[in-house]
Amino acid sequence: MNIFRLAGDLSHLAAIIVLLLKIWKTRSCAGISGKSQILFALVFTTRYLDLFTNFISPYNTVMKMIYLGCAYATVYLIYMKFKATYDGNHDTFRAEFLVVPVGGLAFLVNHEFSPLEILWTFSIYLESVAILPQLFMISKTGEAETITTHYLFALGMYRALYLINWIWRYYFENFFDLIAIVAGCVQTILYCDFFYLYITKVLQGKKLSLPA
C-alpha cells in the first residue's frame, strides 16, 4: 500500500458517497445515469467474488463490502425509491454495446482461462468504460449539476491516482499488471475532456454547460 493507492481508494469512496448523498438529500436522481450505476454495480459484483475465496486484509474486505453496498444502494435509489425523478429519456446510451464487446474481450485476453479470472478481467475492462452512459447523458442534455461534476471529478481522480500507484509499484515493487494498466489508461483518458471542463468552468464557480 502506498500513498497514491490509498488516496485513490479514498477518492473513489468519496465519489460513491457524494453521489449517494446527493440523491438522498435532494430526493432526486435527475441528471444521473442509472445505466452507469448498474454497470458499476456489475463491475464490483464480478470483481469482488474473491471475497468468498481468499482473504487479503481487513482493509481490503471492508472496502470491497462498502463499495458493493453503496453501488447497490445507489441503483436501488435510482430505480426504486426515487424512480419518478429518474431521467430515463436522456439516459439512452446502449449499455449492451459496452457489456457484450467487453465480455468477449475478457474471454480472449486474460491472465488465466478460469471463471473467476475471466470475471475479474471482465470487471476491469467494464469499469474502464462504465462511465460512458453518464458522460453521454451530460453531452446530450448539455449540462450537469455542480455536485454531479464533483462526483465525476472524484471518480476520475481515483483512476489518475491509481496510474501513479502503478508507476510506483513498477519501480519499487517490480510489480505490474498489464490488463489493469491498459484498462486504467483508457479509463483515465475518457475523463480528460471532463477534467478540462471541470477546471476551466466548475472551479471558476460556473455551472458546467456545454456549447449547443
Binding site: 473513489h12 486484509s57 481490503n60 491509481y162 500507484n165 517490480n174 510489480f175 505490474f176 499488471d177 490488463i179
Partner: peptide, 10 residues
Amino acid sequence: TAEMPSKDEL
C-alpha cells in the same frame, strides 16, 4: 519484472 494479477487492489 514479473507480471502478476493485482488482486490486492480494489
